[in-house]
């Protein structure tokens, strides 16, 4: 799979996870990879850049990934944006909450590159 004309925003408060995800996305040939440390930064980036996919953590200071998802879905310009939650929050209640907030797909940490690729392929046209 290659996503040469698409850009992606990675949101995670830990640089380690942003680096791991960025490496996988680079291998998938995304044209541009933006990064944010929390939901507030992410929203600013989304308002000022063309982004085709959001890959976001859940537990972050300032604004959680769930709150970011809700704000994206409430925004007329952003509401159809594919949104992939990549999180350690793996309990049924969390997944139900994310689905109710209209998450596009969900990856539980720890994950392999193949799992992330597979979930992206399900929500993005190639």
């Amino acid at each position: 799979m290659a996503y040469k004309n698409l850009s992606v925003l990675v949101v995670d408060d830990f640089a380690t996870m942003r680096r791991i995800v960025r490496k996988i996305l680079r291998d998938l040939q995304f044209q541009e990879i933006f990064e944010a440390e929390n939901g507030i930064e992410a929203l600013k980036l989304l308002k000022s850049n063309k982004v085709d996919l959001v890959v976001s953590d859940w537990n972050m200071p300032e604004m959680t990934g769930l709150e970011l998802l809700k704000q994206v879905r409430a925004d007329d310009q952003l509401k159809h944006l594919p949104f992939l939650m990549v999180t350690a929050e793996a309990q049924k209640e969390n997944i139900v909450e994310a689905v109710q907030a209209k998450v596009s797909n969900y990856v539980v940490k720890p994950f392999t590159p193949a799992t992330l690729e597979e979930k992206i392929a399900k929500i993005l046209p190639n």
């Binding site: 830990f14 380690t16 537990n59 350690a88 929050e89 793996a90 309990q91 940490k109 720890p110």
Partner: peptide, 13 residues
């Protein structure tokens, strides 16, 4: 920090 986050999350699951 991220390893702690993931291990705690997996244990909670």
């Amino acid at each position: 920090g991220e390893l702690t986050n993931m291990i705690c999350g997996d244990a909670r699951r």
